[in-house]
């Protein structure tokens, strides 16, 4: 072996799975390198001799045994657990949204306080809270009943 390219990608070359540029460049090399030409020739001959050999095939059905051996419900269970997780995530999102709403209302109330006289704050606060607390309760109750209706199984879990 003297050619530095004797161990190049000749197996890929023979299977014609190189880029056009690579293939052309290697073909050009073959034109003036008898050693690499011999290698390519030997690979082709070997393929011709031993490719796709005849082998005895089994007389029985492999598929039946495989299908009997696998747990066909294996991924159904996964599907249920994934959906449960998603619904649980959805319920958490519901709680988060309600908490965010409460926080925003509280934040708005504090911003009022800077422009209202101190003695008016208590009165205004109590009147606003009366107005706000009723719809908030209703919203919370509605959200709870909706979520419980939506995911009765996740509560049992």
């Amino acid at each position: 072996m003297t050619c530095y390219r004797s161990q190049d990608s000749w197996h890929s070359y023979v299977k014609q799975c190189l880029s056009d540029a690579e293939r052309n460049e290697m073909a050009s090399h073959l034109g003036h390198c008898p050693e690499c030409r011999d290698i390519v020739s030997d690979i082709k001959k070997t393929i011709k001799i031993i490719s796709n050999p005849d082998i005895p095939m089994p007389q029985f059905d492999i598929k039946v045994n495989i299908m009997d051996s696998i747990d066909k419900n294996r991924y159904k269970q996964n599907l249920v657990s994934v959906n449960t997780f998603r619904l649980f995530e959805l319920r958490n999102w519901g709680f988060s949204m309600i908490a965010a709403g409460v926080f925003l209302i509280a934040f708005n109330l504090t911003s009022f306080s800077s422009i209202i006289k101190t003695d008016q704050v208590t009165e205004l606060g109590s009147s606003l809270s009366k107005q706000i607390s009723i719809p908030l309760d209703k919203v919370s109750q509605a959200a709870f009943s909706f979520l419980n209706h939506l995911i009765p199984t996740s509560r049992t879990n």
Partner: peptide, 23 residues
């Protein structure tokens, strides 16, 4: 399809590859 619960569908995969893997 198999991953969302159609276990029987795996039979198609077996059909497609059993000879190759047997070889």
């Amino acid at each position: 399809a198999v991953l969302i619960g159609n276990g029987e569908g795996y039979g198609d995969i077996v059909d497609r590859y059993q000879t190759k893997l047997y070889r």
